[in-house]
Simulated assay, not measured.
Amino acid sequence: MGTSILISILITFLVIVLVLYLIGMLPLDARAKQIARIIVIIIGIVSLLKYIAVF
């Protein structure tokens, strides 16, 4: 049980990092990139907290 939660947290973290990298590659202005990064980080933190069973 603990191993599957750890794997889920790791996969979620890797997806967050990948999405942030892809946002950095997009030809957007700096403000749009910053807003997109903040949204991705907030969604990532909420999903990680869900795995830890805070929500």
Rank of each mutant, 00 (worst) to 15 (best):
54 V>M: 03
24 G>S: 06
43 I>M: 09
24 G>T: 01
37 R>W: 04
32 A>E: 06
28 L>H: 01
20 L>C: 12
34 Q>W: 12
5 I>W: 00
6 L>P: 07
10 L>P: 01
15 V>E: 15
40 V>K: 03
8 S>L: 03
53 A>K: 07
22 L>C: 09
4 S>Y: 09
23 I>S: 08
24 G>V: 02
11 I>F: 05
30 A>T: 11
46 V>M: 02
9 I>K: 12
41 I>H: 05
54 V>E: 00
5 I>C: 04
42 I>P: 02
25 M>F: 11
42 I>A: 14
43 I>G: 05
32 A>M: 05
15 V>L: 15
39 I>V: 15
40 V>G: 05
39 I>A: 14
3 T>E: 15
10 L>M: 12
22 L>G: 07
13 F>R: 10
41 I>M: 13
49 L>N: 10
1 M>G: 12
29 D>S: 02
51 Y>N: 07
25 M>D: 10
17 V>K: 12
21 Y>P: 01
21 Y>W: 13
27 P>Q: 07
53 A>F: 01
8 S>P: 00
34 Q>H: 10
22 L>H: 07
17 V>A: 14
51 Y>G: 12
4 S>N: 10
25 M>L: 14
50 K>G: 06
49 L>C: 13
41 I>K: 10
23 I>L: 14
53 A>E: 03
54 V>G: 00
39 I>P: 03
12 T>F: 02
21 Y>K: 11
46 V>I: 10
5 I>Y: 01
48 L>S: 04
11 I>R: 09
8 S>R: 06
31 R>L: 03
32 A>F: 04
32 A>S: 08
19 V>R: 14
5 I>T: 09
50 K>C: 01
4 S>A: 11
28 L>I: 12
3 T>G: 10
6 L>M: 13
6 L>Y: 12
33 K>C: 08
19 V>Y: 15
23 I>E: 11
6 L>S: 15
28 L>Q: 06
9 I>Q: 12
46 V>L: 06
34 Q>A: 15
5 I>R: 06
36 A>L: 15
24 G>C: 01
24 G>L: 01
3 T>F: 13
29 D>C: 00
27 P>H: 05
31 R>T: 05
52 I>S: 00
12 T>Q: 09
42 I>M: 08
49 L>H: 03
12 T>A: 09
2 G>E: 13
53 A>L: 05
17 V>S: 11
21 Y>N: 09
27 P>D: 09
21 Y>E: 09
18 L>F: 14
28 L>Y: 07
36 A>Y: 04
1 M>I: 08
40 V>R: 03
1 M>K: 05
50 K>A: 07
54 V>H: 01
6 L>E: 15
16 I>R: 01
17 V>G: 08
23 I>H: 09
